[in-house]
């Protein structure tokens, strides 16, 4: 199908993009487009305008500042796949296929916050920070604060995700995903990170309506047997995988991820 009619603007800068967003509440930012445009072609979404931020130089690039790696929001999955960013390089390789990875961006993926996307589990496990820009300035939120619900993040209308900050080094990290055989999205994807200070952080994506921390695993620590980590009643089911099965998969994936991370 064709999309409904829309106007296309190539933003000249972050402030230009924010100004356009402010003047048209029905507009959407366009990053890699591989979640947005299929939705528009099915006419499930019909924004009146698309503001293309994908090639803004200030949103690209991966750089290290001290013990933090700063990732520009428009960094593509492919760039991350071939980078040395802990855990995210491993996760990026599992997203879609090479063509999707050439276009899709980490900022777009995080802002979209699909319940089955891969990055959110890793972002939570890495204890990342997310920098958000608005016309009144910038703020930084924690990963825990960022993911709030199904397709719901801390981004308020008129705000834009500009950077992701992750630790430059960790003791160990792994992501294990059980993929839906059709969409290849996560049915249950578990990220486990052992941080430099020895602390353990773990999170799951795909099993519930948004990515969440695996607090039981974190409290049990690296010797956890990974059994009963989540309750099926906290998860979602569909005709491919019930909540009960997802809960079981979380245990299996967590066990594999933990074994590699520790």
């Amino acid at each position: 199908m064709y999309t409904s009619e829309f106007t296309y603007h190539k933003a000249s800068s972050v402030s230009d993009a924010l100004a356009q967003l402010a003047s048209n509440p029905d507009a959407k930012l366009l990053a890699g487009g591989h979640s947005l445009i299929p939705t528009m072609k099915l006419r499930l979404a019909s924004p009146s305008a698309l503001i293309d931020v994908s090639s803004l130089p200030e949103l690209r690039g991966i750089r290290t500042e001290g013990d933090t790696i700063i990732i520009g929001a428009m960094t593509t999955h492919r760039e991350l796949e071939f980078s040395k960013v802990p855990l995210l390089s491993e996760v990026a390789r599992l997203i879609g296929d090479p063509m999707v990875r050439n276009k899709g961006t980490i900022g777009g993926a995080l802002a979209h916050a699909d319940p089955s996307a891969d990055y959110p589990a890793a972002i939570l496990a890495l204890n990342a920070k997310i920098k958000i820009q608005s016309s009144s300035g910038a703020r930084v939120v924690t990963a825990d604060e960022f993911f709030q619900g199904m397709f719901t993040t801390a981004l308020a209308p008129g705000e834009m995700l500009v950077e992701i900050h992750v630790p430059a080094s960790v003791k160990g990290a792994a992501y294990e995903k059980f993929a839906h055989p059709a969409s290849r999205y996560a049915v249950a994807g578990v990220a486990v990170v052992v941080h430099s200070d020895g602390s353990l952080r773990a999170a799951v994506t795909g099993a519930g309506d948004h990515a969440m921390r695996l607090t039981k695993l974190e409290s049990e620590g690296v010797s956890s047997a990974c059994k009963g980590l989540v309750s099926a009643s906290d998860l979602m089911g569909d005709h491919f995988a019930s909540a009960e099965y997802r809960a079981h998969l979380v245990d299996v994936m967590a066990s594999k991820a933990l074994a590699r991370a520790k």
């Binding site: 839906h180 059709a182 999205y185 491919f240």
Partner: peptide
């Protein structure tokens, strides 16, 4: 191993895209 055409009780095809219908 993979393919399944799922009609719900209302005759709705719920496996109507390649996100659900496994090729």
């Amino acid at each position: 191993l993979l393919e399944n055409t799922v009609y719900d009780d209302n005759g709705q095809l719920t496996s109507g895209s390649y996100l659900e219908y496994t090729m």
